[in-house]
Write a protein that binds this DNA or RNA. Structure first.
Length: 882
RNA sequence: GGGAGCAUAGCUCAGUUGGUUCAGAGCGUCUGCCUUACAAGCAGAGGGUCGGGGGUUCGACUCCCUCUGCUCCCACCA
């Protein structure tokens, strides 16, 4: 069969993936083997594949495939996250397009739309992962809102409630006026934002609500909230304002009288030293309000608009109101000045809306005890963070954790299992039936119809923190006394988790908490934290910037193997990835290289009668050792999660060692057959190389592995054992390296002297050269002859060169430019003499000889000896030139 | 404001306890090649006083101090 000179991934990738699925090679069931378990960081159910997913899942797949080939029972559990706020906002937007407002429909109707949306878009990202080659056990696909997983979430809530960890209360929370829900502290992104600093004049009241001549000036960034001011606050130590004690001031525009209070919270040297206290709309002000028993007046509604309590600008958006009130204040004579100002402003991670600190009734989970154990899990090393610089960050977070606001004012998610009695009291239970029983203990008259379930749902992370447990046994969360089922007992704890550092606290830390709580064991042993995928210019890839390529386009253009390789080549743990399409091109080129190496080998015909050439024998011996060496290095890199190093090692092994040296050495002459021993060895090497490459490039390796030798119907490379490093002879490798150096030197001479590669050259060797690899030089440097001569008298018709300490020369009558050679040799001589002087200076330093380890000193002495012999050799060559 | 990290070739990065010519790799660049596996290729070459300065040491890319530049995390100065 004629093979194309270019590898065509489109012809192989879908075929093999379908075949893998058909044979259920990815499927895992508990058995006697050692398990290797990974759970996918569940992507948003309605999401589509982006470069971050490609990075993450490629790394995951490499680890899983490697473990599988190491003979472990590898299980990679896929699934999706319901992503309550992200999904809900998408559904709201889609309904809006259809002219439907969320306010006009019931919860049940909305959820019906949401589930439709989920059914329609929910599978997309998972099918995209298949394109990438991800070897997930699709039979185990889970969704965080599957009925059993949702039940686990509810049980968890009830468990922590009964344990006293969950409480309900009015607290200042981060309100997202676009998502219309509270979000947790972790979901707020602080960004420096330019705004204005308004200096406002508040007149002192005469006691009857009328302004006097006197006034004070406050500085604020939020003039639209002045109507909610409850006081003006100064530092008690601030003598400038002692005259204000006991006074009342009037809020501009609405002339509302508020007191002046003192609190050391106020910084005297910031702004004017006068702070307006607005308890409803600022976290600190709220705290001050509590201390001073100030009233709370909430003038901003859910959507971020001023409500009727503001008295003016009612119905205006907060930012619009800010613009308008500036003019109004100026007109009223209350605006002293406006300065430009930059300060951190909180934005919603999901909707990018400016967060409004707002007082509201929410559910919280106490974190201190959970965080303490989760910190210990990492500090003790039971969970290893890779790279470990994240341990510091992790510790800091765990030591400063706040209680977790777990309620969300959304519909898409697990509804909080709290049931209210008509009198306002409530009970918490897993089901309405159980709730009724509890409620009737409080009030025997209560009926099922009287009970009203809490409207809110739980934070998405309140379900995903159970993921490593609930995907195996959803009965377990909330029931620590439950006997783990067969799957959970076998697969838990999982081995490695690959995820981004941006969700270290959202997700990773909380999974550790849930694992400790319900399993009394950590959920995973290693957390490999990837970098963020950025573009060439270092900008984060994002939809809005439009700088993120569509992974599927890349796969179509370069093949999945090429994309995987391109991603992995620039990946070191924890560092950001500067992605560029040229890397994918490199990946594609590597596919092509492998493909063409195969084409070469497959074109060979074995000649059973042929003898093995010396060069081939040397090549086989060397490559056998080299392969073992490379395998040992590879294992070392895997052990340290240095996957791009492991890959690069294999890449060079294949391209340089195997293709450029080995194959060139064993390649039979055109039209000639190859001897059996060399052929078999080559097929064996190729087989090993394909296995080494397979975790990184699963498709092409499966394709070629099947073509390389006859295989059974259900034989797959993915279930072959990874070659194991044997012991190797480094002397053999070193000898071969010396032969390579000689070949390179001769080739360089050809280039310099413009000698065709086809012209056989005569080589002279002055000294000892490892005899076993001489045929290598003869073959690849295309030598007509190679003779070993004694002495060092190079004649004027030779071009001398050094390979390590061995002098060699090429006989090249008529091509030797004596003058040039002399200049070159003299330069070499000067270099060597300087080098020798440095070495001798070291060796004559007693402190060095006495202080340095023996090995180092011995090495220096060898340098000295080598240098002396080189100098002698160069001098002899120079003498011969004269 | 607090904390962490980074700075090595044109670009992206290795360099594991200070010590074999340890200053490396990949890509890119330059030169010569359509050589019967591969021009998505082959052969060869050039390129860095390891951010600046100081210190410890027989010896520093590696350890310490300092300066400069960048990044990230955390944080309630309105």
């Amino acid at each position: 069969m004629e093979l194309s000179a270019k590898y065509n991934p489109a012809e192989t990738e879908d075929k093999w993936y379908a075949w893998w699925l058909e044979n259920r090679f990815f499927h895992s069931e508990p058995d006697g083997r050692e398990p290797y378990t990974v759970v996918i960081p569940p992507p948003n159910v309605t999401g589509i594949l982006h470069m971050g997913h490609v990075l993450n899942n490629t790394l995951n797949d490499v680890l899983v495939r490697k473990a599988r080939m190491d003979g472990k029972n590898a299980c990679w559990v896929p699934g999706t996250d319901h992503a309550s706020i992200a999904t809900e906002s998408k559904v709201v937007a889609k309904l809006k397009e259809q002219g439907i407002s969320k306010d006009d429909i019931t919860r049940e109707e909305f959820l019906r739309h949401a589930w439709e949306w989920k059914e329609k878009h929910g599978g997309i990202i998972l099918s995209q992962l298949r394109k990438l080659g991800a070897s997930c056990d699709w039979d185990r696909t889970k969704f965080t809102m599957d009925p059993d997983l949702s039940k686990a979430v509810i049980n968890t809530f009830v468990y922590f409630y009964n344990k006293g960890y969950i409480y309900r209360g009015v607290r200042m929370v981060n309100w997202d006026p676009v998502g219309l829900t509270a979000v947790s502290d972790e979901e707020v992104i602080h960004r420096d934002t330019t705004s204005k600093f308004y200096h406002l004049r508040y007149f002192i009241s005469d006691g009857n609500g009328n302004p006097t001549e006197d006034f004070l000036v406050i500085a604020t960034t939020r003039p639209e909230t002045i109507m909610a001011d409850a006081a003006i606050c100064v530092n008690p130590a601030d003598e400038r304002y002692h005259w204000l004690r006991g006074k009342k001031v009037l809020i501009p525009l609405i002339n509302k009288e508020i007191p002046v209070i003192e609190d050391s919270y106020v910084e005297m040297d910031f702004g004017t030293g006068c702070l307006k206290v607005t308890p409803a709309h600022d976290v600190n002000d709220y705290e001050i309000g509590l201390r001073h028993n100030l009233p709370v007046l909430d003038i901003i509604d859910d959507h971020g608009r001023l409500n009727e309590k503001a008295r003016i600008l009612v119905g205006e958006d907060r930012f619009e109101a800010r613009r308008k009130i500036e003019t109004m204040l100026a007109d009223a004579g209350n605006l002293v000045k406006v300065e430009d100002y930059t300060s951190p402003v909180g934005y919603s991670e999901r909707t990018n809306a400016v967060i409004e600190p707002r007082l509201s009734m929410q559910w919280f989970l106490k974190m201190d005890a959970l965080a303490k154990d989760a910190l210990e899990s990492v500090e003790s090393g039971r969970v290893r963070l890779i790279p470990d610089k994240y341990r510091n960050t992790y510790r800091h977070w765990m030591e400063n954790v706040h209680d977790w606001c777990i309620s969300r004012q959304l519909w898409w998610g697990q509804q909080i299992p709290a049931y209210y009695l008509p009198d306002g009291r409530y009970v918490v239970a897993s089901t309405a039936e159980e709730a009724l029983v509890l409620a009737q203990k409080l009030d025997p008259a209560v009926t099922a119809a009287d009970l009203k379930q809490d409207e809110d749902v739980l934070d998405t992370w309140f379900s995903s923190w159970l993921w490593p447990i609930s995907v195996f046994d959803p009965e377990m969360p909330g029931h620590p006394e439950h006997e783990p089922n067969r799957d959970l007992a076998y697969y838990y704890p999982t081995n490695d988790l690959v995820t981004g550092p941006d969700i270290l606290f959202f997700w990773v830390a909380r999974m550790i908490m849930a694992g400790n709580e319900f399993m009394k064991d950590v959920p995973f042993h290693n957390v490999y934290l990837t970098g963020i995928v950025r573009d060439k210019l270092g900008r984060k890839m994002s939809k809005t910037l439009g700088n993120s390529p569509d992974p599927l386009d890349l796969i179509a253009k370069y093949g999945a193997d090429g994309v995987r390789l391109g991603m992995l080549l620039c990946t070191s743990a924890g560092n950001d990835i500067l992605f560029d399409e040229s890397q994918v091109e490199q990946g594609r080129n590597f596919c092509n290289k492998i493909w063409n190496a195969f084409r070469l080998v497959s074109s060979w015909d074995v000649d059973e009668g042929a003898d093995r050439p010396e060069a081939a024998a040397a090549a086989v011996k060397w490559f056998r050792n080299r392969l073992d060496e490379a395998l040992a290095t590879m294992e070392d890199h895997y052990g340290k999660f240095r996957l791009s190093d492991a890959l690069m090692g294999i890449y060079r092994l294949f391209w340089d060692d195997f293709c450029a040296w080995y194959l060139e050495l064993v390649k039979p002459a055109y039209g000639a057959g190859i001897d059996r021993a060399t052929y078999d060895a080559t097929i064996g090497f190729f087989d090993s190389l394909l296995k080494m490459i397979h975790p990184f490039m699963p498709f092409i390796t499966e394709e070629l592995w099947h073509s390389l030798s006859p295989r059974g119907d259900r034989e797959t490379i993915m279930l072959q054992r990874m070659p194991v490093a044997g012991s190797y002879d480094s002397g053999c490798i070193s000898d071969f390296e010396m032969a390579k150096e000689a070949v390179v030197a001769v080739r360089a001479i050809r280039q310099q002297k413009n000698i065709s590669p086809k012209e056989p050259l005569k080589l002279r060797i002055y000294g000892d050269f490892p005899a076993g690899v001489l045929p290598v030089v003869t073959r690849l440097a295309n030598l007509g002859s190679a003779e070993t001569v004694s002495g060092s008298a190079v004649t004027g018709t030779e071009i001398p060169f050094m390979v390590r300490t061995v002098k060699m020369s090429i006989l090249a009558e008529g091509l030797v430019d004596t003058e040039k050679e002399r200049v070159k040799l003299e330069a070499d001589l000067r270099y060597q003499e300087e080098f020798l002087a440095i070495v001798r200076r070291k060796l004559s330093n007693e402190k060095f000889v006495n202080g340095a380890p023996e090995k180092v000193v011995a090495a220096e002495r060898k340098k000295e000896a080598d240098s002396i012999s080189k100098i002698e050799s160069i001098k002899a060559s120079l003498a011969a030139l004269k």
